[in-house]
Computed example of a mutant assay.
Amino acid sequence: MTKHFIALLTTIICFTVAAHSQEVTKTANNAFQPGEQITYKLKYGIFSAAEAVIKVENTPNKYEGKPAMHIVADAKTLGTFNFLFNVRNKYESFIDTKTLEPYYYTENRKEGGYKHSDKVTFDHQTNKITADKGVYPFTGNVFDFLSAYYYTRNIDVSGLKINDKLELRYFLEDGVHSLTVTYLGKEQVKCGLGTFNCLKFNPTIIPGRIFRKNSKLYLWITDDANRIPVKAHVELIVGSLVMDLSQASGLKYPLNPVKK
Rank of each mutant, 00 (worst) to 15 (best):
T130K: 14
A131N: 09
A131Y: 10
A131R: 13
K133T: 11
K133G: 09
K133V: 03
K133Y: 10
K133P: 07
K133I: 04
G134W: 11
G134S: 14
G134K: 10
Y136F: 15
P137M: 00
P137I: 04
P137F: 05
F138K: 10
F138T: 10
T139M: 11
T139C: 07
T139L: 10
G140F: 00
G140I: 01
N141W: 01
V142P: 01
V142T: 05
F143Q: 06
D144T: 06
D144Y: 02
F145P: 07
F145L: 13
L146Y: 02
L146W: 02
L146H: 05
L146S: 01
L146D: 02
S147V: 14
S147P: 12
S147G: 11
A148H: 05
A148W: 03
A148E: 03
Y149F: 10
Y149G: 00
Y150C: 04
Y151I: 06
T152M: 07
R153H: 08
N154H: 15
I155D: 00
D156S: 12
D156L: 07
S158T: 14
S158W: 12
G159Q: 15
G159H: 15
K161R: 07
K161I: 03
K161C: 04
I162K: 15
I162W: 06
D164K: 10
D164R: 08
K165Y: 08
L166S: 09
L166R: 07
E167W: 04
L168M: 13
R169S: 03
R169F: 04
R169W: 05
F171M: 12
F171C: 02
F171G: 03
L172F: 14
L172Q: 14
L172H: 13
L172D: 15
E173V: 06
E173C: 06
D174A: 04
D174L: 00
D174W: 04
H177Y: 15
L179W: 10
L179Q: 15
L179I: 15
T180C: 02
T180R: 14
T180M: 09
V181Q: 01
V181T: 14
V181E: 02
T182W: 03
Y183N: 00
Y183S: 00
Y183H: 06
Y183K: 00
L184Q: 13
L184H: 09
G185K: 13
